[in-house]
């Protein structure tokens, strides 16, 4: 069975590529979804039969619980609420990315990993993962009208955002250089989460789909970073596909709205942007 593992990665990577390819035309789109589903199934089976995996109880319970939450979420959401559903599903995925990164970080919190590539990759992964998580929650709240969909701005916003982002990056770098400083770790997570919120509150509700596409791209890059850290090529491929496609989709959507990319990302600061 173990010999199957590397092939599982190849098969599911190919199926993911086919899924995106078929997805680009309405007549083959549903076939694309099937390809993606089969690819995911192969990936999961491949992960389960790894010889490192010895305990299945928790995994099975978690998967059943996840399905029990995910299925109603997909079925009960009205079709008009699609963008926010994607956003909330995204928040879950990004949280998973962040938590995996955290577990891996604690595994590598030893002096011998100081400054190693693995820890750098993990820090990058967690930064993107956690910020995508809160950013997606805010995107969801804005689209669901749980909070005002108008851009939220306050004086000195750019400076505050810049300081928070910089602080997160600096602490991440400190942890990568010396992973034994575990007391800094919660601060790093908190700053990444906070930056996710700050990043999205100044963006208006109408621009949210673009933001969600961009967050898709971040989640993809985070998955890739995790692949680099864990030495898993499937994660690298799937993450790169998502990263690239999410980004290009965000750019296409901006063009469709006749807006520049920078305008959507930074235009919300201070003023309501004229279309």
């Amino acid at each position: 069975m173990h010999a199957f593992v590397p092939f599982a990665a190849i098969i599911s990577s190919s199926l993911f590529i086919l899924a995106l390819m078929w997805m680009s035309h309405p007549s083959t789109a549903r076939r694309g979804v099937r390809a993606g589903e089969i690819g995911m199934l192969v990936a999961i089976v491949g992960a389960l039969v790894q010889h490192e995996v010895v305990d299945y109880n928790l995994i099975i319970i978690a998967m059943i619980a996840g399905a029990a939450v995910g299925i109603p979420m997909a079925l009960l959401m009205p079709m008009t609420a699609i963008p926010q559903r994607t956003a909330i599903s995204h928040a879950f995925g990004a949280l998973a990315v962040g938590l995996i990164g955290a577990a891996e970080y604690y595994k590598h919190a030893h002096a011998e990993y100081a400054g190693s590539f693995i820890v750098w990759a993990l820090m990058f992964e967690m930064l993107l993962g956690f910020l995508t998580c809160t950013a997606s929650v805010i995107a969801f709240a804005k689209l669901q009208e749980l909070m005002g969909s108008r851009p939220v701005s306050f004086p000195g916003q750019r400076i505050v955002n810049g300081v928070v982002a910089l602080a997160a990056v600096v602490i991440g770098a400190m942890l990568a250089i010396d992973p034994t400083q575990t007391w800094l770790f919660p601060a790093f997570v908190a700053l990444a989460l906070l930056f996710g919120i700050l990043m999205v509150i100044p963006i208006g509700g109408a621009d949210m789909p673009t933001v969600i596409a961009l967050l898709n791209s971040y989640a993809g890059l985070a998955a890739s970073a995790m692949g680099f850290a864990l030495g898993n090529k499937l994660l690298i491929v799937a993450g790169a596909l998502d990263g690239a496609s999410g980004f290009i989709l965000a750019v296409i959507m901006c063009k469709a709205m006749n807006r520049s990319f920078a305008n959507v990302m930074f235009g919300g600061f201070g003023t309501v942007v004229a279309g």
């Binding site: 599911s12 993911f16 899924a19 995106l20 997805m23 680009s24 694309g32 979804v33 993606g36 690819g39 995911m40 990936a43 999961i44 491949g46 992960a47 389960l48 790894q50 490192e52 995996v53 010895v54 305990d55 299945y56 928790l58 995994i59 978690a62 699609i82 994607t86 599903s89 995204h90 995925g93 998973a96 990315v97 938590l99 995996i100 577990a103 891996e104 789909p209 969600i212 596409a213 898709n216 989640a219 993809g220 985070a222 998955a223 995790m226 864990l230 898993n232 499937l234 994660l235 799937a238 993450g239 596909l241 998502d242 496609s245 999410g246 989709l249």
Partner: peptide, 21 residues
């Protein structure tokens, strides 16, 4: 498409399974 790439991003479950088990 956005929804599909979102679903594909869930491939991180592979990493989660490894860590848990």
């Amino acid at each position: 498409l956005m929804s599909l790439t979102n679903a594909i991003a869930a491939v991180v479950i592979v990493g989660a399974i490894t860590i848990t088990g």
